[in-house]
Computed example of a mutant assay.
Amino acid sequence: MKEQFGMKPGSKDIKLEILISGKELSELKRHSWQMVEAFSLDRRIEKYQGKRPIGLYSWDFDCILAVMKNALNDPTEYPEKNDSGYKALKTLFGQLQKEYRKFN
């Protein structure tokens, strides 16, 4: 989180509360290692249990959406588009894109 590094969100920064659970959360956690450089977002995702909404800022969405897009387009990650993991991540990707539009 930005707060841990002495950087605080500005007064105009919006934080959206999103509930992610089940297979969608499992698939997101599977790719969280790619978020390691994003202000400890990887650790936040790994610790997240999906019982309450998680607060995400626009920069969190930027990172998560980029990681998810790369995973969805990587045939070594998801060789079968009918795979339940692929479908769950794709569904979550669409939901997060929709939420991300609220920042604009």
Rank of each mutant, 00 (worst) to 15 (best):
Met1Thr: 07
Met1Gln: 09
Gln4Ile: 03
Gly6Leu: 08
Gly6Ser: 09
Lys8Tyr: 15
Pro9Leu: 15
Gly10Asp: 14
Ser11Leu: 12
Ser11Tyr: 10
Lys12Glu: 15
Asp13Tyr: 01
Asp13Leu: 01
Ile14Phe: 09
Glu17Gly: 03
Glu17Thr: 04
Leu19His: 11
Leu19Lys: 15
Leu19Gln: 14
Leu19Ser: 10
Ile20Gly: 07
Gly22Asp: 10
Gly22Arg: 02
Glu24Phe: 02
Leu25Asp: 04
Leu25Glu: 05
Leu25Gly: 07
Leu25Thr: 05
Leu25Phe: 00
Ser26Met: 08
Ser26Glu: 15
Glu27Ser: 07
Leu28Met: 08
Leu28Asn: 10
Lys29Ala: 11
Arg30Lys: 15
His31Val: 04
His31Thr: 02
Ser32Val: 01
Met35His: 06
Val36Cys: 10
Glu37Val: 00
Asp42Thr: 01
Ile45Phe: 13
Ile45Ser: 10
Glu46Ala: 06
Glu46His: 10
Lys47Trp: 08
Lys47Gln: 12
Tyr48Cys: 04
Gly50Glu: 03
Lys51Phe: 13
Pro53Lys: 14
Pro53Tyr: 13
Ile54Tyr: 14
Ile54Arg: 08
Ile54Leu: 13
Ile54Cys: 07
Gly55Asn: 02
Leu56Pro: 12
Tyr57Ile: 04
Ser58Cys: 03
Ser58Ala: 13
Ser58Tyr: 05
Phe61Arg: 04
Asp62Glu: 14
Asp62His: 13
Asp62Met: 04
Asp62Arg: 05
Cys63Ser: 13
Cys63Asn: 07
Ile64Lys: 05
Ile64Ala: 08
Ile64Phe: 12
Leu65Asp: 10
Ala66Pro: 00
Val67Trp: 03
Ala71Asp: 10
Ala71Thr: 04
Leu72Cys: 09
Leu72Arg: 05
Asn73Leu: 13
Asn73Gly: 09
Asp74Trp: 03
Pro75Trp: 02
Pro75Asp: 13
Thr76Phe: 10
Tyr78Trp: 07
Tyr78Met: 04
Pro79Phe: 06
Glu80Met: 04
Lys81Gly: 01
Lys81Gln: 13
Lys81Met: 07
Ser84Pro: 01
Ser84Arg: 08
Ser84Val: 05
Gly85His: 09
Lys87Pro: 02
Ala88Gly: 10
Leu89Pro: 04
Lys90Ile: 01
Lys90Ala: 10
Lys90Thr: 01
Thr91Pro: 00
Thr91Lys: 14
Thr91Phe: 09
Leu92Val: 00
Phe93Pro: 00
Phe93Lys: 01
Phe93His: 11
Gly94Met: 07
Gly94Phe: 02
Gly94Ile: 00
Gln95Val: 01
Leu96Thr: 01
Leu96Asn: 05
Leu96Gln: 04
Gln97Glu: 11
Lys98Gly: 06
Lys98Thr: 07
Lys98Trp: 12
Glu99Pro: 01
Glu99Arg: 06
Tyr100Lys: 07
Tyr100Asp: 15
Tyr100Trp: 08
Tyr100Ser: 07
Arg101Pro: 00
Lys102Ile: 00
Lys102Met: 09
Phe103Leu: 06
Asn104Phe: 13
Asn104His: 11
